[in-house]
Design a protein around this nucleic acid. Structure first.
Lengths: 148, 148
DNA sequence: CCTAACTGCTGTAGCGACTGGAGCTTCAAG
DNA sequence: CTTGAAGCTCCAGTCGCTACAGCAGTTAGG
């Protein structure tokens, strides 16, 4: 049995984050010591490590929850697991495509700027002009969610 | 002079978002009609369009604020503008690198999975195992912020 | 002139995934 | 026994919106 601090060191997940995961139901409520401190066994280490790695791969917490549930049913087909992972891969590729487009536009903007007065600044000019030309109402959002 | 709804249509920025931008100081407080409704002139259209395009390029609102301030001082050197844009480019490249790594790992994981029982699922296995091998406490965060 | 439908107003709360702080208690080492 | 680190709970804040409730103003048709 280990304290929350030791669990944090062993898994690389911060203490407040562990408490947060418990609060939102990703981790079961921990046993407590006589003095009301959380105690964790080896299974908790494995579960939290699983969560951490899934988060590093960018799975949202809801997907992690589903994966954990599936991981506990070893006899079922892993089709559901694959579907979650494939969805995540599609999402990551969508973000990649968007970021690549942004990168190109920003780099082009910067390359054209001569570094003189703001009145002649290409960056400012592009930000002003392109916007007026833009005809489509909006793009996709690009919110990411990946931990440390 | 135009209503907030017309401004929204002209710029592709949603009405509540415009009010939000006013609230957080990106847009000046709008004039009001006799009946207390916001009224916007052509300058407001340009300013909001500028904001929208900067947001599409992924600049956080704080950076947009700085860019707007700089855009209003045409005689100053655009070095500060370039610095903001370069920082944003660096940030986007950092995210790109991270997403590319995720994409690779996810794709590898999925390619190895035979689609049988969860007990044999490579995806679940990798999520469990890699995490235990991970020795570094953490990676970088990856929060994005880009509008529609 | 009246009414319906639309658009606008304010204020507050919620999203995801944490992070940080206040103010307290418990624990391990010396 | 004392000290300081680590633990506890609860609440607020982050970012950039978005949604809702419950009103008021505006506009087009009859």
């Amino acid at each position: 049995m280990r304290s929350i601090g030791r669990l944090a060191r062993e898994t690389g997940v911060k203490v407040p984050t562990i408490r947060y995961y418990e609060r939102v139901g990703l981790l079961p409520e921990a046993e407590r010591s006589a003095g009301n401190q959380r105690l964790y066994d080896a299974a908790a280490v494995r579960r939290l490590a699983f969560i951490r790695h899934a988060r590093e791969l960018g799975f949202p917490l809801d997907a992690v929850r589903d994966l954990l549930r599936l991981a506990d049913e070893p006899e079922r087909s892993c089709a559901a697991v694959d579907a979650i992972a494939r969805r995540q891969l599609v999402e990551i590729r969508r973000r990649l495509a968007r970021l690549e487009a942004l990168e190109g536009e920003l780099a082009r903007m910067l390359a054209q700027c001569e570094g003189e007065r703001i009145a002649d600044c290409r960056v400012i000019e592009v930000l002003g002009d392109l916007a007026l030309r833009s005809d489509q109402p909006a793009a996709e959002d690009e919110a990411a969610n990946t931990p440390g």
